[in-house]
Simulated scan of single mutants.
Amino acid sequence: MTEVFLCSHRRTPIGRHGGALAMLRPDDMAAHVIDGLLDLHPGLAVDEVIFGCANQAGEDNRNVARMAVLLSRLPETVPALTVNRLCASGLDAVIAGARAVRDGADLVIAGGVESMTRAPFVLGKAETAFARAAEIHDTTIGWRFVNDRIAQAYGVESMPETAENVAADHGISRADQDAFALRSQARYDAGWHASDILPATLRGRKGDTVVNADEHPRATTIEKLAALPAPFRKGGTVTAGNASGVNDGAAALILASAAGVKRFGLQPLARVGRAASAGVAPRVMGIGPVAAVERLVARGARRPGDMDVIELNEAFAAQALACTRAWGLADDDARVNAHGGGISMGHPLGMSGARIAGTAARRLAEGGSAAALVTLCVGVGQGVALELLAV
């Protein structure tokens, strides 16, 4: 099998909803990180660009990857594809890019982008003549234009409600969720992440503003976390403090064959190994990584307990703990999200999978590690997992 190398990783800072990156369109953010890779490696000949994006009904014109190519310094002859598996879209872009390299491409740029701030409202067309009803939905996150058969068979619980289901099914206490959230904030290392960040310049009437740091991390205490309300269920345990944020950002990586690495003088961070996806009940979508990793292991990957590096997207502390406990890991296992995760950093849906793949590759490249697990849960009940290997 053709070896695929993950080489460079560049990303924007992660902005809060309505925050520092709110004025940036998703196609502009994606183009920005593509150009950042071109700045690192002048003379790249890119075979294809693949990006993940969950909210594809707005400014990105449904194929944000192609728009980003046209806005970047890449020639218009570079083809582009946008993939959508909601929260795992960025990781699926990496997996699809690796497949393209295995099929003969020398170099693919893969990544993910999301502006949850700018996700539009959508209005459905009338289903009958002279209809007077108008159904408007916010596309930021969650269900819209629900199929009645889906609702009857599976329900349409919100993402926080599914986390409450996971907490109840797996006996995960509020105290344990808050402790996990506090560790995520404490582990976030701005200095470690700084080398991946490509500052974003915002043009304004009073001059330019440069955003060069993640906006979501915040100092907190266990007392402050315990004082937050749990608004999603009476007697519930899920709060704004032990859940990921609603965020904006973009990330991009270079995937190359051995010939591409040699041709362009690249320095690989990791080798791309096996990948797997799986479906679970939508009401407990957060356990998706457990099913996906089970398939990954069946395909020959190491078990999570034998991995040196684990990047597990923290959609909610409840679902992250359900996964790590299913794998027999301690709640505070140092291998899991060593430099922070979705609770501290935020979760721009389409970006996160690419971001954690880049983070895992960097951790591998630091030495002393042989294999990494990259995995996310997915709304409506799925999980995706990828194995990375040391070079």
Rank of each mutant, 00 (worst) to 15 (best):
V261F: 01
A213N: 11
L182V: 02
G52Q: 06
E59P: 05
G104S: 06
R263G: 04
A315P: 04
S115W: 06
S195V: 14
S195K: 15
A88G: 13
A371H: 12
P160M: 12
A119F: 03
I222N: 00
A251R: 08
A258Q: 11
E215M: 12
I356R: 01
L182P: 04
T324L: 15
H17T: 12
P229A: 11
P199C: 08
V284I: 15
D92H: 13
I254G: 09
R62K: 11
A320I: 00
E223C: 10
D92G: 06
L86H: 10
L373I: 10
A153L: 14
E387M: 14
V284P: 10
A54E: 09
A68M: 08
R362D: 09
A54V: 12
T140G: 01
M159Y: 04
L24Y: 04
A326P: 02
S277Y: 09
Q185Y: 11
D214H: 06
L71N: 15
A110V: 01
V210Y: 04
G104Q: 04
T220Q: 03
A330S: 15
R218T: 06
N84D: 14
T201A: 10
G265Q: 07
H41R: 09
L386K: 01
Q319A: 03
L312H: 10
V378C: 01
N242C: 05
T359R: 13
A119C: 07
D208H: 04
V33G: 08
P348C: 11
Q382F: 06
V380A: 12
T82G: 12
W327V: 03
E161T: 13
I34S: 04
G273V: 05
V284S: 12
S195N: 13
K262W: 02
E366D: 15
L312E: 04
V64G: 02
P268T: 02
A365K: 13
Q185P: 01
D60Y: 02
V309S: 05
L225P: 11
T12C: 06
V33S: 02
H170C: 12
G286R: 06
E76I: 00
R66Y: 06
V211D: 08
I287N: 07
Q382T: 01
A292N: 05
V272G: 02
T221C: 10
E387C: 10
G350L: 13
W327E: 07
A168M: 04
E59S: 12
H339E: 14
R10E: 07
L389C: 07
L389Q: 11
A20M: 14
T12F: 08
